[in-house]
Amino acid sequence: MSDPRFHLALRMGDNSLILAQQNSKWCGHAPTLEEDIALANVSLDLMGHAQMWLGLAAEIEGEDRTADILAFFRDTDEFRNSLLVERPNVDFATTLMRQYLFDVWHLEQLLLLSQCPDILIAEISQKALVEVEYHRQRSQSLVMKLGDGTVESHNRMQEALNALWSYFGSFFEDSIVDELLFDLKISSMPSSLYPRVLKQLNQDCLLSTLKIPESEFWQKGAVQGHHTENLGYILAEMQYLQRTYPNSKW
């Protein structure tokens, strides 16, 4: 098997890349101007993180691939993002809940990786961490306001949480790569993050009057490249230009 750090960098990069692509579809369509700007700015930060992670993955691999080649010339089964980020936007409630769940996981993951003995992984994590703290502050406060808002906003946030829940578990799926990363002391097992993440969710949900689903049936497979149908549509749109006109530049 190739260097497990390559897979870790891909996983981090793909999560940020796919969510940035999804969020940016709201540009010009968000319910308020402030949210429009927020979604675009969060996407921009995530795109920056994706560029750093995929750049690192390319460097570790050492086969002349670049961050751009990794983003535009891989197929769905080569992507390592979680199933949550590829869920369709649906409506603002779903988009916001997806962002919030992602931010809670992302923050915990980056906190761990910023202590990593591998200097390159630690540096990118520290850089991303300070920006992600701001992302979580925003999504957390909005989830609270809408969860504890009107009957309509509460119901829609709860429905979004219920619908996304089984895909959220995809962040905590362990694989052989994770065992190797664990042995090298680079990263802990994804499943070990779950109690910390759940603690945060429980605190926030208490205040937002939302109820965390009891089911712990998780959709799995993303770590092996088994994705939901929607990732194909996302990639088709994202990769179209480079696939049609390879290596074209702005």
């Binding site: 996407s43 921009l44 930060d45 995530l46 795109m47 920056g48 993180h49 560029q51 750093m52 850089k127 991303a128 920006e131």
Partner: peptide
């Protein structure tokens, strides 16, 4: 050093 990661 970059300011924000994705800053154009």
């Amino acid at each position: 050093t970059p300011t924000y990661s994705g800053c154009p």
